[in-house]
């Protein structure tokens, strides 16, 4: 079945579109919304957003493939994003990434079979003063060490 926005989401779309003089400008915020609703932006989702904003699906594809947060594949319930940039590297991010890889048994770019965790390495998250840091879904975690990571991940159901 092709994806459909919920009634609540459609109202939000309307509100977003109203901010801009051109409908197309609402594309990125609407994609972010769609990403939250459907967990990914693949071809079906692209078509849906294109139809709502009255633009060609290929225009949507162009934009989706540019931004790293608009994933085309479904990801796990918890998306672990480990910063691999400079301050985090200086503070030992690589060792922590190794620890997470072994702990949940997947490589960056993969999702666990049960769909619980996805792992990514990412560029600077803008939290360098608490390096090494990571995000799990929309939450930031900083000043990490192995013990702290265990505590965070073990709590996730």
């Amino acid at each position: 079945m092709s994806p459909q926005f919920s009634e609540k989401a459609l109202k939000q779309v309307e509100k977003i579109v109203a901010r801009y003089p051109h409908k197309e400008a609402a594309l990125l915020p609407v994609l972010v919304l769609a990403r939250r609703e459907f967990g990914r932006i693949a071809e079906e989702e692209e078509k849906l957003v294109a139809a709502i904003l009255g633009i060609k699906p290929i225009k949507v594809r162009e934009v989706v493939t540019f931004y790293s947060m608009l994933n085309r594949e479904k990801i796990g319930k918890y998306h672990i994003q480990v910063c691999s940039n400079i301050s985090c590297t200086v503070m030992g991010a690589e060792t922590l990434l190794d620890h997470i890889r072994k702990k949940i048994g997947i490589e960056p770019g993969q999702t666990t079979e049960d769909g619980k965790f996805s792992l990514s390495t990412v560029e600077c998250l803008g939290a360098c003063e608490m390096a090494p840091c990571m995000m799990v879904n929309e939450h930031y975690y900083g000043n990490l060490d192995k013990k702290k990571i265990d505590k965070i991940l073990d709590k996730m159901e």
């Binding site: 051109h22 197309e24 400008a25 609402a26 594309l27 990125l28 994609l31 972010v32 990403r35 162009e62 934009v63 540019f66 931004y67 790293s68 947060m69 608009l70 560029e123 600077c124």
Partner: peptide, 20 residues
């Protein structure tokens, strides 16, 4: 939605207009 280049001012404008 995740792109370093969008901090460059004209890239930011393009992004705000709904483009790459």
């Amino acid at each position: 939605a995740g792109a370093y280049i969008c901090g460059e001012e004209t890239a930011l404008l393009e992004s705000l207009e709904g483009k790459r």
